[in-house]
Nucleic acid binder design. Structure first.
Length: 561
RNA sequence: CGGGACGUAGCGCAGCCUGGUUAGCGCGCCGCGUUUGGGACGCGGAGGCCGCGAGUUCGAAUCUCGCCGUCCCGACCA
């Protein structure tokens, strides 16, 4: 089938919508791929849906290749399933009731439903199983943004593995990790697998796939030598080397009137900020006050602290600080306090200036282990200039979007839902599971973020809406449309997807639309090429252009794809 | 949920501060004609609950209040 532009719904826009910021948002809207219906709620127009389906198909093929079996589970889900696993109260869930008042939810993911089906697994002989489906997910996101980057409704491929033991889970997990690498490679998107936090999914461990992009919500930290990649929230890193003054045999009080900031302190004492420490009292969920201590030039990583404390925390109020330390915010330190002190690893060796817990005073020469007994942990946020914890190489910080996330959740869902099997020894055990998510829409956005220019998108051939865009400058001469039709037909017969721009428009508009839509190969027919019965072949990615005889078109195009 | 901004034709915007006939501009759209290798030009035309509601006023796109929607930053987040 040759797609004729004159018959298609291709609403391209000359200007991006005023409220668009992200490149993918602007270009996907301008190119007529997607349209917004409501905040974070999008329709895929015919062109965009073709791309989405191609990404889906790549995912499907790679899932099938590791033994995945495709399902389709429903959206409408009885709330009881989610009450059983304790997830019914997650704020992002949409709730609804039927005419009889029965309570349903729209699931944000399908662990409960798949585990419900896994209850039919009875014997270890049936394991392992890998199940997946493509389904709409609804999430009551507090703040959708950036076109497809963060939405309230989207299609996700989510897969679930069921195994009899930890070794099996690991195997299923690794199968998925490798399959994901292949999916992203085939889609032409750069993605890095990084250790991640499991958030509301619970479970043992998880790996995030982050795609560097011009706009995103995550920061990817990667080593220049490729030895390390992590999400900024949990990335380890080697901080800048400190510059210490002469060491002291014991802490020494020094009066520091009106000094309340690290910069002020370092300047006042004539030392480097790396030789200071910063005390941040926080209150855990159980109400306990903890003193987090980091180097003066560092920032506290809240996400790391959550892991270390096994609890969320909030900064202590002025009153709480006054009551516990007898001093105010700018003069706090670890010496002589009765609280648990969590000190960042950077404070392990050396002497630092710390607050004296007396307004207007600090202590010089404070040494962990000698002057106070901390619990050491990595609680600092990496900064530009830090070095790789594996090889000491430079670290790069790149904004990124999360395009896939895979979890080992163990018996987190099988236990509450009673999904068990009988093992070789006749014992009933809970199934061990993992879940594996990937959003084709986000992959699509990530590709555009990574592959575009001022004029438009540069689709990788594997997911382009059409592989070839034939532009007929129809009005330039008699016979142009005929030659373009003929070329399109030969490509179509060779199994290549063709978009034929047969519209009666000026050349500039047709070229600009072609650049915007971004098919990898553009073939132009006009009076210049008509003379010798040839076409101009332009590669969208490189801008390279050659003249190709009409009878060689299919062959030459195949070489380039 | 906290902070900031915006809402006028399909898209991009002006008008609002200082209230006053028929609400404007560019692009797009429809018709006719001339044009045609990078978004041409002429002539003619269509298209608006000025986000919604209340209030002030002789009179509201314009002033006041409330609500709704949308975007950005933060919080939050498979």
């Amino acid at each position: 089938m040759i797609a004729r532009a004159s018959k298609l719904f291709l609403p391209t826009l000359r200007d991006p919508p005023a409220d668009a910021e992200a490149a993918s948002h602007k270009l996907l809207v301008r190119g007529g791929f997607i349209r917004q219906v409501s905040a974070g709620v999008w329709s895929f127009l015919p062109l965009g849906w073709r791309v989405h389906r191609k990404i889906e198909q790549i995912i499907r093929e790679e899932m099938d290749a590791i033994g995945g079996q495709e399902f389709l589970c429903p959206l409408l889900t009885p709330v009881e399933l989610w009450e059983a696993t304790g997830r019914a109260s997650i704020p992002e869930i949409f709730h609804l009731t039927d005419r009889n008042g029965r309570h349903f939810i729209l699931p944000m993911t399908h662990e409960e439903t798949f585990t419900f089906h896994a209850r039919e697994i009875q014997s270890y002989k049936e394991l392992p199983q890998i199940w997946y489906h493509f389904a709409v997910k609804d999430r009551d996101e507090p703040r959708p943004r950036g076109g497809l980057l963060r939405v309230r409704e989207f299609i996700m491929k989510d897969a679930y593995s069921f195994d009899r033991d930890e070794e099996g889970v690991k195997r299923s997990f690794e199968l998925h990790r490798d399959a994901y690498d292949r999916m992203f490679a085939r889609c032409g998107v750069e993605a890095h697998a990084v250790q991640a936090e499991s958030g509301i999914m619970g479970g043992k461990y998880s790996v995030d796939f982050l795609a560097p992009s011009g706009s995103g919500e995550n920061t990817l930290v990667v080593c220049e030598n490729g030895d390390f990649a992590a999400d900024l929230e949990i990335a380890r890193a080697i901080p800048r080397a400190p510059e210490f003054p002469e060491p002291l045999t014991a802490p020494e009080e020094v009066e520091t009137p009106d000094v309340t900031t690290i910069e002020g302190l370092a300047q006042f004492l004539g030392i480097d900020a790396t030789a200071t420490s910063k005390a941040m009292p926080v209150v855990k969920d159980d109400g306990a006050l903890v003193l987090a201590l980091i180097r003066g030039d560092d920032r506290l990583s809240e996400s790391k602290l959550v892991g270390v404390l096994s609890s969320a925390s909030r900064p202590a109020t002025d009153e709480e600080i006054r009551a516990a330390f007898g001093a105010s915010g700018g003069s706090l330190g670890p010496v002589g306090v009765e609280l648990e002190v969590v000190a960042d690893e950077a404070l392990r060796g050396g002497q630092f200036v710390a607050g004296a817990n007396r307004d207007g005073w600090h202590l010089r020469g404070v040494e962990a282990g000698r002057d106070y007994e901390p619990r050491f942990a990595d609680i600092r946020e990496p900064v530009e200039g830090d070095l790789c914890p594996e090889c000491g190489g430079a670290l790069q910080f790149r904004t990124a979007i999360e395009i896939g996330h895979i979890f080992n959740f163990g018996d987190r869902y099988s236990k509450p839902l009673g999904a068990t099997f009988v093992d070789e020894d006749g014992q009933e055990r809970p199934l061990l599971g993992g879940s594996y998510g990937i959003g084709p829409g986000r992959v699509m956005a990530a590709v555009v973020e990574q592959s575009h220019d001022e004029q438009g998108i540069k689709w990788p051939a594997a997911i382009a809406p059409y592989q070839v865009h034939v532009v007929a400058l129809a009005a330039t001469a008699e016979g142009v449309l005929e030659l373009a039709e003929e070329a399109a037909r030969s490509l179509d017969e060779a199994g290549i997807e063709v978009l034929l721009d047969d519209r009666d428009l000026r050349p500039g508009e047709k070229f600009n639309d072609a650049d915007l839509i971004g098919c990898p190969i553009r073939l132009t027919v006009g009076k210049k090429t008509l003379e010798d019965g040839s076409l101009d072949m332009l590669l969208r990615a490189s801008g390279e252009q050659v003249r190709v005889p009409a009878n060689e078109i299919a062959t030459r195009v195949k070489e380039m794809l």
